[in-house]
């Protein structure tokens, strides 16, 4: 009888696990990875590889350093660092030197995630923090975007935030189709092709990993806020289709660890995220999705506090007669 397990109910469980969820997130990022490589060539592939390898490597080295057994590290490896590495690679410009993704990944994993206790304990989104670390350290490179090598090329290198900015500055605008496909738009490796992002998001929704209506709310709010700030309805499509908003909303803001728990809390989170992205974008001129995510992440405990749900059969406590 020694092999009989003794534990509390429930004795059966659904097949999902953190590992499976993270593997699915990796799969959902594949369309963006492929389109990044198609648009930006072999250098994009190198960037992605460097980011993923340094993320995974730094996690393993860190855990070895705190004297965990190698077998344990392998058996409990949950693919979160792969996701972090992939996202970091996808949100930096394609012409960034290879040491930039490496630095960003190592910072994200070691400082943001592992020092706080590993998966589930990080306060802010590691990928967003890694990107901002790189952005502050290497501002010039990180703020110089190249356009894909195929499609209608406006200018090979754009300095500045997004096509929204150029639309507002000189009135020239790209067609929505170009924005959607990312052809001729300068941007980051994975953020350029919106179609690929949407395919990945739909995959996540089908696998029930994200509630797809939440990021859609935030994207819509971002568009509306941009319209209000610019005073023209034409700003709506460029606002939602440019820069890192879509990628940030679907893949980074939906990160479980740094989200509120309840659905109600998530609604607040995503509305504020969308609004904050547009507002920061309008007043700073930088690509601000990552900043908005970081700011919202630190607000999560507060949102959690106000977003309580009433239990089934809840009745207002009756005031005791004095």
């Amino acid at each position: 009888m020694s092999n009989i397990l003794f534990s509390t109910s429930p004795h059966v469980r659904s097949g999902n696990s953190t590992k499976k969820i993270m593997q699915n997130v990796c799969i959902s990022l594949l369309p963006a990875v492929i389109m990044g490589i198609v648009y930006f060539g072999i250098f994009a592939l190198l960037t992605i590889l460097v980011a993923v390898v340094s993320a995974v490597g730094s996690e393993i080295v860190y855990r070895l350093a705190i004297k965990e057994k190698f077998e344990d590290i392998i058996s409990s490896f949950d693919y979160t660092s792969v996701v972090t590495g992939l996202i970091i690679a996808l949100i930096i410009p394609a012409n960034a030197h290879l040491y930039i993704p490496a630095f960003a990944s190592i910072f994200a994993i070691v400082v943001v995630k592992m020092l706080f206790g590993g998966t589930g304990y990080n306060l802010v989104n590691p990928a967003a923090a890694g990107r901002i670390f790189a952005f502050i350290s290497f501002t010039t490179v990180m703020n110089t975007f190249v356009a894909p090598s195929i499609g209608a090329i406006n200018s090979s290198v754009i300095t500045g935030a997004t096509s929204l900015q150029s639309f507002l500055n000189d009135g020239s605008s790209l067609s929505s189709i170009d924005l959607l496909l990312g052809t001729g738009v300068a941007g980051c490796i994975g953020e350029t092709c919106k179609i690929a992002i949407l395919i990945g998001a739909i995959y996540l929704a089908v696998k029930k990993i994200i509630k797809i209506w939440l990021p859609i709310i935030s994207v819509a709010v971002a568009g509306i806020v941009a319209v209000l700030l610019n005073g023209t309805i034409d700003a709506f499509l460029p606002a939602i289709l440019s820069g890192g908003l879509l990628f940030g909303a679907f893949f980074m803001a939906t990160d479980y660890v740094t989200n509120p728990v309840t659905t109600f809390g998530n609604v607040i989170f995503f509305i504020l995220f969308g609004a904050l992205t547009s507002i920061l974008r309008h007043f700073t001129g930088y690509e601000t999705a990552s900043f908005a995510i970081l700011m919202m992440n630190v607000l999560v405990p507060l949102i959690d506090k106000i977003s309580t749900v009433k239990p089934f059969g809840y009745t207002k406590p009756q005031k005791e007669a004095k």
Binding site: L5, S7, P10, H11, V12, R13, S17, T18, I21, S76, D78, G117, G118, T119, G120, Y121, Y256, V257, T258, N259, P260, V261, T262, T263, N266, D304, T308, V309, K310, P311, F312, G313, Y314
Partner: peptide, 29 residues
């Protein structure tokens, strides 16, 4: 293959427990 034999890992705050709770509690909290 049908029983629950997996070891617990860190909570990732996904909110599935709160979405499913028939009493509308927030188990993670």
């Amino acid at each position: 293959n049908e029983a629950n034999v997996d070891k617990p890992t860190n909570c990732i705050n996904c909110g599935r427990c709160a979405d499913n709770c028939p009493m509308r509690l927030v188990p993670v909290r």
